[in-house]
């Protein structure tokens, strides 16, 4: 298993390399540069700054300079947040994004799996139809629509929850962003769970468990839950990616100083190193989490384990 994990990690290197090259080309292809401002600098000052950050070099030269820094673990300085390195900015933003993402994922799993299981047990009956209605709705509406609607309803109209992040103490500020982020995932996981649970509940070994007299709750807990979770587990990889993407929007809407916000600002400011740093960081994170998912898959399915 260890050997398998190591091989997979090695296999991820070309993927990461491709991500870096594409991201590098794309930030540089965007019109403008990090030091273009409304207030036009004198040409000699501008040239000095360009030279200081090596922006006067050719693109391949800049790329190799960046890569050699990367190999030493140096993501470079931020162009716009003066005095901060990209690593420091990631260190500041990521803990907040991580809390947000982990909470959203936990919420999505708990609510999604429960709702999906309930729907499977009451297949084609009222509870099933209600769950599936909301799941369809949740999948259809994008995060950037859900977020303002929730703010409008719970913050502006009802005054139950804070609309933003800054100046709010206590966990209340997490509620709306986490729900916004989790909703599409809840919907997706509920649908997946329902489908795989229906499949598993129709298997012969569930009939055997019923023939042994076990009650429905015990059958779900002991016999059905683990196999029914396998498709959900496979979805965790894409789900993590979706939550990362979602967090970019959510942090902007709620004004949360997480990585997503740095990313959006960085992109707007042509802060090349910051954008690249965050892309590489997230790509590595997603690749590693996918690996964890695969290893867990082996742990859940004894037949995959032996290879």
């Amino acid at each position: 298993m260890l050997r398998y994990a190591l091989l997979r990690l090695l296999g991820a290197i070309p993927t990461l390399l491709l991500v870096i090259v594409l991201a590098f080309l794309m930030v540089h292809a965007a019109p403008g540069g990090p030091f273009d401002d409304e207030r036009v600098l004198p040409t000699d000052v501008a040239a000095n700054i360009q030279a200081a950050y090596h922006l006067d070099e050719s693109l391949p030269q800049q790329f190799f300079r960046y890569m050699s820094g990367l190999l030493r673990g140096d993501l470079g300085p931020s162009y716009r947040y003066r005095d901060y390195s990209v690593s420091e900015l990631i260190g500041r933003g990521f803990p907040i994004s991580l809390q947000l993402g982990a909470l959203a994922m936990a919420l999505a799993l708990i609510v999604g799996v429960s709702a999906g299981t309930l729907a499977a047990l009451r297949q084609n009956k009222l509870p099933d139809r209600i769950v599936m209605f909301f799941a369809m709705t949740g999948i259809s509406i994008p995060v950037f629509v859900i977020a303002p609607v929730l703010v409008l309803l719970f913050a502006v109209k009802l005054h139950w929850l804070p609309a933003g992040w800054s100046g709010v103490t206590g966990p209340a500020k997490f509620i709306l962003p986490v729900i916004t982020l989790a909703l599409p995932q809840i919907a997706y996981i509920a649908r997946l769970t329902r489908a795989s649970m229906i499949d598993i509940l129709g298997r012969d070994f569930i009939r055997t468990a019923r023939a042994q007299g076990l009650g429905t709750a015990t059958i779900i807990r002991v016999h059905a839950l683990k196999p029914a979770m396998l498709p959900v587990l496979s979805y965790m990889g894409p789900a993590i990616a979706a939550i990362v993407t979602g967090s970019v929007v959510v942090e902007e809407v709620f004004g949360i100083p997480g990585l997503g916000q740095f990313f959006v600002r960085g992109a707007g400011n042509r802060d090349y190193t910051l954008v690249l740093g965050i892309v590489i960081f997230y790509a590595t994170l997603i690749v590693s989490l996918n690996l964890v998912v695969d290893v867990l898959y082996g742990a859940l399915d004894p037949r995959v384990r032996r290879r």
């Binding site: 298997r203 012969d204 070994f205 009939r207 468990a209 023939a211 007299g213 076990l214 015990t218 002991v222």
Partner: peptide
């Protein structure tokens, strides 16, 4: 079930839970 009437099915590969150790499946009864 189980206490008055026990049953053995034909296809044991399908009729036993492939995800659960056999000891645990029977202990559960």
């Amino acid at each position: 079930r189980a206490r008055r009437i026990g049953i053995v099915f034909q296809d044991s590969m399908q009729a036993l839970n492939p995800y659960l150790k056999i000891g645990k499946q029977i202990r559960q009864i």
